[in-house]
Amino acid sequence: MTQIDLIPDEPRPLTRMARMLWADKFALVAALFLLVVLVLALIGPWWLDAVAQKQNLRGRNAPPFEWERGWLWVLGADALGRPLLARIIVAAQNTMLVAAGAVIGSAIMGTVLGLVAGYAGRRTGMVIMRLADVIMSFPSLLLAVVVLYILGPSVVNLVIVLAITRIPVYLRTTRAEVMEIRERMFVQAAEVMGASAPRIIFRHILPVVLPTLMTIATLDFAFVMLAESALSFLGIGIQPPEITWGLMIAQGKQYLTNAWWLSFWPGLAIILTTLSLNLLSNWMRIALDPTQRWRLEMRQTKTEVKA
């Protein structure tokens, strides 16, 4: 009688990622916080828009933690008596929308140009890289200030400007990765078998580059969100009656001496979101790298053994 050793099946990719996320508690808390922010950004305007816009001059600059007013006033009220908690929840949508739109737009454009620049001939690559040099020759925030001053502040213009300024980040990274990957054996084998250039680029090279780009996009999301907040603080970002966290800080700066909470709470929301994005990006850098992934897997194994 033959004895067959049963080899346990490998966990599915999503299950494996969930286990590695559970092994890093800081990244787990960051992911849960970002999930809450995302949910609030989706349902916030539908849920609390009327409350966030309703003025109550009797409660202007009301201090935080006055529970008798209700839970929406736990963070206090602004100069027009509107509850800060409701306004922060509603403002999350515009803040996330601008950041996500800019990151997705710049990532797509930069990745496509980087793939072409890295795989195509030297002349084509040099032309594309000169385009990146032109964009990078201008400070991103200064370029955004000039363009928004000319075109006028709006959500669309803000997304376009921030996306353009971030294209070189993805372009240069993708080109460097492609120039290294195209010399590997599996790419050369695909070329010998007669695969077309688009198939090689998008079928064989892009999946290898994608984990690096995802990590950069997570970090870039935090940078774009801070840039949007800075532009709104300067008064050339999104304008009232629309609202973002940066605009809330700008509206509260004149009351810092007697109503610090007007700028503190939206600023804290920006800090916590940015910190969570950085923690999650650090986890993704390890989890998506086959040479570093063992650290999280070993930590998870130790946790299971102790349990």
Rank of each mutant, 00 (worst) to 15 (best):
M17D: 00
R293Q: 15
Q239R: 14
A18Q: 09
T273M: 13
N157S: 04
W294F: 13
L84R: 06
S232D: 14
A77Y: 10
A269N: 05
L35P: 00
A91T: 05
L296Y: 08
A176H: 04
R122E: 12
G101S: 05
N61I: 10
I89F: 09
N282L: 11
V305N: 10
A190Y: 11
V39E: 03
A163G: 11
P240F: 06
T274N: 04
V208G: 00
T95A: 13
A117K: 04
F65V: 03
W67N: 11
D220Y: 04
F202G: 01
Q292W: 08
L296E: 08
A77H: 01
P198A: 06
L279V: 14
A222S: 12
G152F: 07
Q300G: 10
L48W: 10
V37W: 04
V145N: 09
W22D: 07
L158D: 00
S196N: 06
P198S: 05
T212Q: 12
R69D: 09
M126A: 13
N61T: 07
K25S: 13
H204L: 02
H204C: 06
G118E: 08
L28F: 15
T95E: 03
I270R: 11
F233E: 08
A222W: 01
E297T: 07
A27M: 10
F138K: 06
I167V: 15
V169C: 00
I4E: 13
A52W: 02
P241I: 07
A230M: 11
V169K: 04
W73Y: 15
G235I: 10
T291Y: 12
F33Y: 15
N61P: 00
Y255G: 00
S263C: 07
L151M: 12
S106L: 05
R16F: 00
E66D: 13
V209T: 12
S232H: 08
L80C: 00
P139Q: 09
P13R: 10
F138W: 12
P8I: 07
H204F: 06
L234I: 07
A30W: 02
I271D: 02
A222N: 03
L158Y: 02
R299V: 03
L115W: 04
D49M: 10
R172V: 07
A269E: 01
